[in-house]
C-alpha cells in the first residue's frame, strides 16, 4: 500500500508560535505548545472515513469560529476600548475554534474506535 501523508500532522507546526513566546519571555504564548498533539496524525492513514470525520470536525470548528466572534465582539467592544476589543475578540474566537475542533475530532475518533470492534 502506498504511504500517504496525513496533512493534519502539519497543524503541529503552529507549536512554533510558542517558540516566539520562549524567545521573547511571553508566557502567554506557551499554550501553542498544545499543537504538538497533532504530530501523532503523521502516523494515521488518511483514508476516506478519516477524511470524512476530519471534515465534520473542521466544519463544526469553522461554524463555531463564525458564531462565537459575534458575542465576543459585542462583549469586548462594550468592555474594552475599540483598539483592544477587536484583537481580544479574535483571540477568544480562535481559542473557541481550536477547542471545538479538537473536542469534535476526539469524540469522532472515540465513536470510530467504538464501532470498530475486532472480529
Amino acid at each position: 500500500m502506498k504511504h500517504r501523508i496525513n496533512y493534519l500532522g502539519f497543524l503541529s507546526l503552529l507549536a512554533l508560535i510558542a517558540v516566539l513566546g520562549w524567545t521573547t519571555d511571553n508566557n502567554g504564548l506557551y499554550g501553542f505548545f498544545g499543537f504538538v498533539y497533532y504530530i501523532r496524525y503523521f502516523r494515521v492513514i488518511p483514508d476516506e472515513f478519516f477524511r470524512l470525520n476530519l471534515q465534520k470536525a473542521a466544519t463544526f470548528a469553522f461554524m463555531a469560529e463564525m458564531i462565537s466572534l459575534v458575542p465576543f465582539m459585542f462583549f469586548c467592544t462594550y468592555r474594552y476600548t475599540s483598539a483592544k476589543a477587536v484583537p481580544m475578540a479574535f483571540g477568544l474566537s480562535f481559542a473557541v475554534t481550536i477547542f471545538a475542533f479538537t473536542i469534535a475530532l476526539i469524540v469522532l475518533e472515540w465513536r470510530e474506535r467504538k464501532g470498530a470492534a475486532y472480529d
Partner: peptide, 16 residues
C-alpha cells in the same frame, strides 16, 4: 483496499 482497520470495522457494523 488501502484503508484503516477501523474503517472496515465501522463498515461491517453499518456505521459508515
Amino acid at each position: 483496499v488501502g484503508v484503516r482497520r477501523e474503517t472496515i470495522g465501522n463498515l461491517e457494523k453499518g456505521r459508515y
